[in-house]
């Protein structure tokens, strides 16, 4: 493992005003090292997605600082956040969020509109095993295939960090394993920092670091000395 790439320092996020205030994150502190495969674990409403959203530059903290790859994300304006999302983060959604009117290859290629460098889109599609699905539209592919296209799209930007919000949540177990293995390999073989948010404790067994959250607070940060290979996990 290398240097610290993510640092959450006293991060609090509250929604609403007056009596209706809700603390989604309450004094959250953690660090993530470069190349780590991290799982943020928690039940629904634990505040894990808020962490991911702030980390992804989609939301800003009410207080505290978030530093990613030396940049203070919590202080960025709209334009800087766009650049940050474009250059640093690769996002994988639970429901894939592919553009239905674009084919697989076009969905991957569209990031070339914002990031000129990085790997070839076709290469990325092949890397996720979908080289022969390039001309298919999302509606012509299974959920697992769509999620793989979504991963290829994230990779085509060559991001420093890959964020996944319940990336296997909409998939059956068998397909979920394929996707998870792909993500874990990104960390293990390519040295990418992969951060997944899930409520599935079994997935956490494969991670280098598990951050467990409850009621907006971090309950535990655990380093997995010997992560279980993805193929051996069942859920």
């Amino acid at each position: 493992m290398g240097n610290t790439i993510v640092e959450f320092k006293n991060v609090t996020k509250q929604y609403g005003q007056g009596e209706a205030i809700q603390l989604a994150n309450n004094d959250v502190n953690f660090t993530i090292e470069e190349g780590e495969f991290v799982v943020i674990l928690g039940q629904s409403g634990a505040g894990k997605s808020t962490v991911l959203n702030m980390l992804g530059g989609m939301d800003t903290p009410t207080s505290g600082t978030i530093t990613v790859a030396g940049q203070e994300v919590s202080k960025m304006n709209d334009k800087e956040l766009s650049e940050y999302r474009a250059g640093t983060i690769g996002f994988i959604f639970q429901f894939y969020n592919l553009l239905p009117s674009l084919t697989a290859i076009e969905n991957v290629s569209l990031v070339k509109n914002i990031v000129k460098s990085g790997p070839e889109p076709m290469e990325m599609l092949r890397a996720v095993g979908l080289g022969d699905h390039a001309k298919k539209f999302p509606s012509q592919m299974s959920g697992g295939e769509q999620q793989r296209v979504s991963i290829a799209r994230a990779l085509a930007k060559d991001p420093k960090i890959i964020l996944g919000d319940e990336p296997t949540g909409a998939l059956d177990s068998e397909t979920g394993v394929i996707v998870l293995e792909l993500l874990s390999n990104l960390s293990r073989k390519q040295g990418k920092t992969v951060i997944l948010v899930t409520h599935n404790a079994d997935i956490a067994k494969c991670a280098d670091k598990v951050i467990r959250m409850k009621n907006g607070k971090i309950r535990e940060i655990r380093i997995n000395e010997s992560p279980v290979p993805v193929r051996e996990v069942e859920w």
Binding site: S82, E83, R85, I89, F91, K157
Partner: peptide
């Protein structure tokens, strides 16, 4: 989605 991917306004 595009915004999350980094497309500007």
């Amino acid at each position: 989605t595009l915004k999350v991917l980094g497309f500007t306004t």
